[in-house]
Nucleic acid binder design. Sequence first.
DNA 1: CGCAGTTCGCTGCGCCACGCAGCGATTTCT
DNA 2: AGAAATCGCTGCGTGGCGCAGCGAACTGCG
Lengths: 159, 159
Amino acid sequence: MRDPNRARLYEELSSESRRYLAAYVLFNQAVADHLGLHPTDVQCLSLLTAEPEPLTVKQIAGMTGLTTGSATRLVDRLERAGYVTRTPDRQDRRRVLVTPVPESVARVTALWDDLGQTWQTVFDDHSEDELRVITRHMRRAIDISRTQIERLRAMPRPD
Amino acid sequence: MRDPNRARLYEELSSESRRYLAAYVLFNQAVADHLGLHPTDVQCLSLLTAEPEPLTVKQIAGMTGLTTGSATRLVDRLERAGYVTRTPDRQDRRRVLVTPVPESVARVTALWDDLGQTWQTVFDDHSEDELRVITRHMRRAIDISRTQIERLRAMPRPD
DNA sequence: CGCAGTTCGCTGCGCCACGCAGCGATTTCT
DNA sequence: AGAAATCGCTGCGTGGCGCAGCGAACTGCG
């Protein structure tokens, strides 16, 4: 922190990442509006397709930050709209596996891919090493945010 | 896209950035819970403090993606909680300038700074060049998302 | 085995953030 | 000057969400 040049870069990245995340929220909302869904629903589909295996309702609740009750309603909406299916878990019959429906999700991913072609130009600006740097930074940030959330929950309310 | 190695890196960064953004949503919500505010309110304070000058209600609406009516309610909440003050604009008396209250916002920024010390370790992992790479990527992404939102609004609904 | 204690998903219930439509006040256009 | 657009505010209805509690299923202890 003694290096003023580094400090400037730190400030720059800090404020830029805020705008980056604000931009994402707006983008996600625009996608949701376009598909006639809620931002949370799109978020959920995004997470579902990012995972290789189906998720349980509990896991969805954890990843979205909702209660299990709200997660049930969320899956209800997605199921009614035909984006996912419920499958009982053989190993644990309390659990319900939520699987994305390929044909329906294709509409969403098609939109993403369409928009992704433009995103592609962003990636093309970077070398492979640079891509790795960005990915590594995001992984670190994800880890940190998890521990920070733990700390926040443990901290007393400032009221 | 012909290079399979690049394609893998692309996929990796794509799914990792989704998790990155999901992590942010959770983090933002945890901060909001801790302060007894709504995620939108925190988002608004974040944007307000990032700008050097006070914003109008209309501008807040634009930056958060809400209607002017909802933005009025948002400012109502923040004003009632003592985080901002309303000031009539001399130049245009239709407009209302929303100014953050330094003492109240200090509590929020203090929390951010506290958490920021841990974030510092993330930045310390990177060289200056790498920091620049990440910042550049985010700037590009912000630009792209703006134009993509325009495109989405212009596209017809797939219903 | 059997019986508590825990976990998982689902369901009434009430709250409140949000979009919508319309209002008065003010500015801008012609 | 009047007409049209802009800004912020306000009833109203919708619906996502947390909360508390339910039954079903798994787990651990004696």
